[in-house]
Design a protein around this nucleic acid. Sequence first.
DNA 1: ACGGAACCGTACCGTACGGTACCTGATGGG
DNA 2: CCCATCAGGTACCGTACGGTACGGTTCCGT
Lengths: 219, 219
Amino acid sequence: MRPDNADTPQFSPRQNEVLEQALRLLVEGGDKALTTSGLARAASCSKESLYKWFGDRDGVLAAMIAYQASKVRTADRSGEKLTDQILKQHLEQFGRDLLEVLGGDVSLALNRLAIGQTSRDGSKLGRLLVEHGRRQIDRRAMALMEAGKRAGLLRFDNADAAYHTFYGLVVSDLHVRMLLGEPAPKDNTRQAERAVEAFLALHGVQPKTADAMRVSAGR
Amino acid sequence: MRPDNADTPQFSPRQNEVLEQALRLLVEGGDKALTTSGLARAASCSKESLYKWFGDRDGVLAAMIAYQASKVRTADRSGEKLTDQILKQHLEQFGRDLLEVLGGDVSLALNRLAIGQTSRDGSKLGRLLVEHGRRQIDRRAMALMEAGKRAGLLRFDNADAAYHTFYGLVVSDLHVRMLLGEPAPKDNTRQAERAVEAFLALHGVQPKTADAMRVSAGR
DNA sequence: ACGGAACCGTACCGTACGGTACCTGATGGG
DNA sequence: CCCATCAGGTACCGTACGGTACGGTTCCGT
């Protein structure tokens, strides 16, 4: 099933193998460690093949992003009937997943790579990353928002704004801090719970009082 | 004899001049453009002086961060008596300032640089950046939080958690998007206002109803 | 006026990268 | 059985960087 996009170039198994090694090198040593020679050695292929398959080094980077994105598939459990408890669980699950994805080795490495190249490539990689990597998770979130609204459990005028509010509550400055090398916090669950609580206080159908909020502010 | 924490490691005027040029090069062309030869040429100094002053290239980068941080001074208007209106204005001002700082050329360039180096230098630059660059603004925010609480206008158990909530509401994923090359949004003011509104609904002493929130969700 | 320190400009060195060319071995179809 | 295609291995080239060394110049203290 690939309704995703017309242009899913998709690579051969051998090429996927090479891209896997490329990701490994990138995660382990950053973009300095991802040299064409090093990749050829690690993946047991020739540099000539690399250039034949991917054009040039930037082509390899782009292929890595596409490849990594192709591995991520989000389960879409939109069939369930929503209650406020189910919604809350889904929101918390989404928050946990979001934090886990953002803090993952490969995600951090790819984001660092794209950010480091932004200044000199006109943000080509950056756009690629934000589109390929974000589309799945954004869709899932927006579906959740709209479903919550349809079920009369959430209230907002602008689903996109509501989603961004939720995103901010969940992630805060964690993403940038992790990109800068700070270790991921131990407990994603707690962070997600707090974010959901705040979000429901803002956009839930029965807004909790701020007093109810404050009992669990033990960040 | 390196009292880093003291607020003035500070460099000579000539060195500041060189660091200014270094920042210019970095902003214009990213870290690839910031070569020792290029910097020496742009700043009309010799490479030998660069190495004498800063040790090596990483020393230059660290000095740039310290220098840039030394330029930022936040006006601390903690004398005023807080009313709910004044607090709101201060929060909005803080939000606008935060967005402006994060979206600034130099800030983005330095963050990109530090993030790009994180994978290969053990996040030395990253820690430097987050400490030097964040301390001022964090202090200002925490002072605001505590003042609001003392004045009976804000309620929270954990000031740090409340601040991070506010931060997330203001910034959401904007910082990372800008780091990836997305242009800054045109209207920081509106974003700040919406964030303050939500924040006060969560932690204000008279929590607004979610209904009052939703009238201005025109993101 | 003298001497030395600081500094500029430039030339230089070793290295490592991206990218290309060439050769070798395997595989598969006629 | 042979040949064409593809991919791996290696050697190579040009370039550009970080870092060092050296000669000339300016400036300051004594």
